[in-house]
Design a protein around this nucleic acid. Sequence first.
DNA 1: CAATTATATCGTTACATTTCGATATGTAAC
DNA 2: GTTACATATCGAAATGTAACGATATAATTG
Lengths: 108, 108
Amino acid sequence: MKVRTASMPTLRLTPLAALEQAAECLKTLAHPHRLRIVQMLLQGRYTVGELAEACEIPSHMASEHLRLMQRCGFLTSEKDGRKNFYQIAEQHLASIMGCIESRFGCVP
Amino acid sequence: MKVRTASMPTLRLTPLAALEQAAECLKTLAHPHRLRIVQMLLQGRYTVGELAEACEIPSHMASEHLRLMQRCGFLTSEKDGRKNFYQIAEQHLASIMGCIESRFGCVP
DNA sequence: CAATTATATCGTTACATTTCGATATGTAAC
DNA sequence: GTTACATATCGAAATGTAACGATATAATTG
């Protein structure tokens, strides 16, 4: 067993309960189409159909992805006629997406 | 179909192929025990047994989590006798973990 | 060499997620 | 009212993932 000494700084650990929440959110984010949807919504307001077209998937599947992300607090929606516009609700998504983009490309 | 105008800035989109890679990595990260392991390794070098104890899991399961994270390039390991020390290989983990901590707690 | 310790791997079971077609709901156009 | 459109929901099939006990390897101790 490791014994802590004065020369050893105390280890900062987030409680497991908080890490479970974090893992849930990351799992929700961890899908290529959902990443693209978030990336688009960080740049504007879009309808289900527009997001589906950008991801090259049928709109009923985009709808499902949006429902998942709405359920964990990432997004909100506003109906306008028969269109449904989605937008970012969780502001931390900007910084997390920034990290992802800086690692996986397409940032000058 | 949405028509782009001068007042509308061009939409920056990471290619789907890159988002698939990103999603893979996020999926690997999206587990409470793996998050704790990464959080610890960002603060030092630890053995399988130490990481397992901190996560309160049997060490053969810690070993499995470590294997997954090593396989996607997050970690490397160095044997010393019968102990195996793991450490961070992917430097972007620091900033991503920073985002997660700032949202899910335990940062003053 | 036998026993112990630290880590890794295997095979199975249980559970969750993704995707898809079909269908439903609500709104607008004719 | 009927048709077309946008979105949402349902159920099934396929696939993926997590956890576990058992077992294996490899280094150290006695």
